[in-house]
Amino acid sequence: MNASAYIHISLIDLLIALLFVGVTAIVSYWQGLGLERDIAVGTVRTFVQLLTVGFVLQRLFDASRWYWVVAALAIMTTVAGYNAMKRQSGAKQGLFAVMTAAIATAGVITLILVIGVVLRVRPWYQPQYVIPIAGMVIGNSMTGAALVVNRFHSELTLRRSEVEASLALGATAREAAAGALRESLRAAMMPTINSMMTVGLVQLPGMMTGQIISGASPPDAVRYQVVVMLMVAAATAVAAMTAVFGALGVFFTPAQQLSPRLELGRRFDAYTARAKH
């Protein structure tokens, strides 16, 4: 099969695709959902964000320099770290560093394995491979890190008396939080493990679909998808593990006490911001 034989989407085709927006808007209007404004904003953002990314990626691909690729990965990691922090229901202070470090750790380990050992991309920084794969690794690491820390926070709040009883008996923070750690890690890893159970049966994954459309043979696309599934599971596990141990250092003090942030919740951020002045 000829890889360049797939159908290109012209600007006119894109405008025609706006018909879908019309359908969405009609449903909203008809049923009085009041979502018209959000639909309009969402449409514009989809256009602007994706066209910008397309443009940036094209420049990145043309330049094909290792330092531009590394810079792009660093930006992706930082934005993901910020997002994982933003998704926390409790206090956020100190968690940006934890999240970014966790996502970076998971990213580096998984990318080295996938790019260097499984796919053996030469040169390693070939953007065509590194960027999309890193996107999936970083995206899933972000979800895993955000999920694990959120759950850890609520487990500690829920099990507060058990945790303090353990501390009072001489346990370290890690020992006292063992049950909460286990529960949070399970919760963070379950979604990727569940998706490994149903992949291909219910829905064809986006990457595989994309490859097939752009001309790859289904068996080839499937192999990529298998690598991606396993890689995503590993990335989630490493990110969740790193994030939750980082959070342990944030939710407990060095003297093995529960931090007041657990009691104060979101209000802790405002409180510490004020205390600095």
């Binding site: 008396s161 058990e162 303090e164 009883a165 353990s166 009072a168 049950g179």
Partner: peptide, 8 residues
């Protein structure tokens, strides 16, 4: 503690 804090 006031309420018995049980360890699982």
């Amino acid at each position: 503690f006031q309420t018995p804090a049980l360890i699982a």
